[in-house]
Design a protein around this nucleic acid. Structure first.
Lengths: 356, 356
DNA sequence: CAGTCTTTCCAAAACGTTTTGGAAAAGGTC
DNA sequence: GACCTTTTCCAAAACGTTTTGGAAAGACTG
């Protein structure tokens, strides 16, 4: 039943070939000093020549560590997550490989929830720790992992979680605050927000940035100026965009929780003969490749996913190695990417002055 | 040193709690008939309640199978590969999870070649089989895997490889042939090709499609009408594009090995006041998201990466399970996606007639 | 009742590694 | 030469699972 693949060379055969015990060969390869330098070299050379690679199963059994770090990807929102996933995975894998570990990817399907899958991979000691991304407001995965004291790092933050845990996040609040300040400087007074369900924490934080900046300037975000779409559905998104654009007074600046939303909003605006950026400023978040090619280019923020993933992986390795207390949560800034989708507020909205 | 994480429940403890032997519990959970129905149920219930999950290490050791399938991603061309990687990985993982397997991702860095990494993960019996993508003309990975009789499936094909092996590919030759026929119907007579290094097999097959269609119509592709870039470098790409556009007679239709090339070509054409599609038809391949948003939209082919990945994974599972002979290589068609970057050949190139 | 068959369970071995606790040999010291 | 130390090696145990080859007990057969 098992595939062909000629028998693999194991420690037993290698050691008997060398006329040594398994112990000695094992310790020679591990570089211990209780085997003579000459023997050590001889063993190393033989192992190299014969292509011996220790079985991970054996090693795993005795050490209790698998050498794998897990990532559970939910299948449902695949469209939503795809844009980043490749970059994120490459970053994780890159950092892990440097430490001799690998990345194990499991999928959560309808039948088996993400928490189930986590329980499975951890209790089956298939992984030594896990990476969790796309934080949710009341994140069952995070509670579970903290409860069980399983090594993990969250990409994102859960604001309600009071117990300590390790996370890495890009500061969406600061980014949207900065964008809002800039737009206020440009004369904008009527803002709108196009966002996803608040069950994602990133939408929560970005919104908070917008609102806090408005508050600092005595402005506010009326509840009807917030349009939220549940999942990424083209029609729902078009309706939400149209709703925002039919407000009176119409917002002159709309912040979008992601570039995908921004691109659709610009499209809908175009179909209503609302010009971006002269009539409407739009700002996104993520800097997906499409944003550079859309017309106009979408002004946005870049969170350098791959680099973040490298950080997440390195933090997790530290946690796994037991230095939990040495690793502090980290909040990093997003890079502002100015393109063509924002500009000064349209003249008609300003206090009466001569038209330029 | 090892992270906290309370001790995990193992077969030993579970069986002593139940007052049964390890053997009986193991066999009860596996559903063997040599344990009474009553006991079997009692064991199952206890295992469920206490959250017992068998250690993969123990199972691995005795079965010789890890339950993992490997994918090695090269780090160097990360930009090049990123566009697909997420989708490809999701497809693989999805199909594997259904069969109770998982995906293990390793990275090939500068120090360690892809073949090295393959050797490592296979000999360390970390994976039961591997997926190889981005086939190369003389692919060292493929030769190695065939030599070693390691279960694998190649996404792509290696034309020079005479020994049998399992592959899954999208038919780039048919796609480019079809596109060329269509363009010839539209009056085009002067073609160009913008492509990557021929060391990738997909460029080879796509080019073959263009050339064979031209030949059928008594046309040919002069060598100077082929511009090839080594890696994805913006400047080199701009130069190659400009070179194609400065040919006399200038091609009226240029096929591009990938959408990324097509988008850049359209951009360069724009900067030279060459209008797409009225002066120049451009056709890409891949249907990356950007292609839909570029102006004009890029006419291209979709290879449904995620679906391909599901197929690749299922084929590999069959191979691992020993049905190597039952699984045949598969060549599938790409979907033609008509957008705005192609059209009739410009009138000036046609035999003298009145301008429309 | 003796013998056979079935049902239900289990002890022990095997998988490949690392670590523990020596043992043998060699070298030094008085 | 007797004793101690250091160097170099190794047998055995342990990790958690599955499978093999029974054994014990009960049920059936004649």
């Amino acid at each position: 039943m098992a595939a062909k693949g000629r028998r693999k060379l194991r420690l037993k055969e290698l050691s008997s070939d060398l006329g040594l015990s398994i112990t000695t060969v094992s310790r020679a390869l591990a570089g211990y000093s209780d085997v003579s330098a000459a023997t050590r070299e001889r063993v190393r050379e033989a192992a190299e020549r014969s292509g011996y690679i220790p079985s991970r199963a054996g090693r795993m059994l005795v050490s209790g560590n698998s050498g794998f770090v897990g990532l559970v990807v939910p299948l449902r929102d695949s469209h939503f997550i795809d844009a980043f996933l490749g970059e994120f995975i490459v970053g994780l894998s890159q950092a892990l490989t440097e430490g001799g570990r690998d990345l194990a990817i499991s999928t959560a399907t309808g039948k088996r929830s993400e928490v189930d899958v986590l329980r499975h991979v951890v209790n089956g000691q298939q992984v030594d720790g896990v990476v969790v991304n796309r934080a949710l407001m009341r994140d069952a995965r995070v509670s579970y992992l903290i409860d069980q004291q399983i090594p993990f790092v969250l990409h994102g933050r859960v604001p309600d979680e009071t117990r300590p845990y390790v996370w890495f996040d890009t500061d969406g609040t600061a980014a949207f605050s900065e964008a809002t300040e800039m737009l206020i400087d440009l004369g904008h007074r009527h803002f709108g927000l196009l966002t996803f369900s608040e069950s994602f924490t990133f939408t929560h934080f970005r919104r908070a940035g917008l609102e806090s900046a408005l508050k600092r300037h005595g402005l506010s975000l009326p509840s009807e100026a917030v349009a939220s779409v549940g999942r990424f559905d083209e029609d729902e998104l078009a309706r939400a965009s149209a709703a925002l654009l039919s407000l009176r007074p119409r917002p002159t600046a709309i912040l979008c929780a992601t570039d995908a939303l921004a691109i659709k909003l610009v499209e809908v605006a175009g179909s209503l003969s609302i010009n971006v950026p002269s009539d409407l400023s739009v700002i996104g978040f993520d800097n997906v490749p499409v944003s550079a090619y859309a017309t106009p280019g979408i002004t946005t923020f870049d969170q350098r996913i791959q680099e973040s993933a490298v950080n997440v992986a390195n933090m997790l390795v530290q946690v796994i190695d037991g230095d939990v207390d040495a690793v502090k949560p980290r909040l990093v800034k997003a890079d502002f990417i100015a393109r063509g989708s924002h500009g000064p507020a349209p003249a008609v909205q300003r206090p009466a002055r001569a038209a330029g």
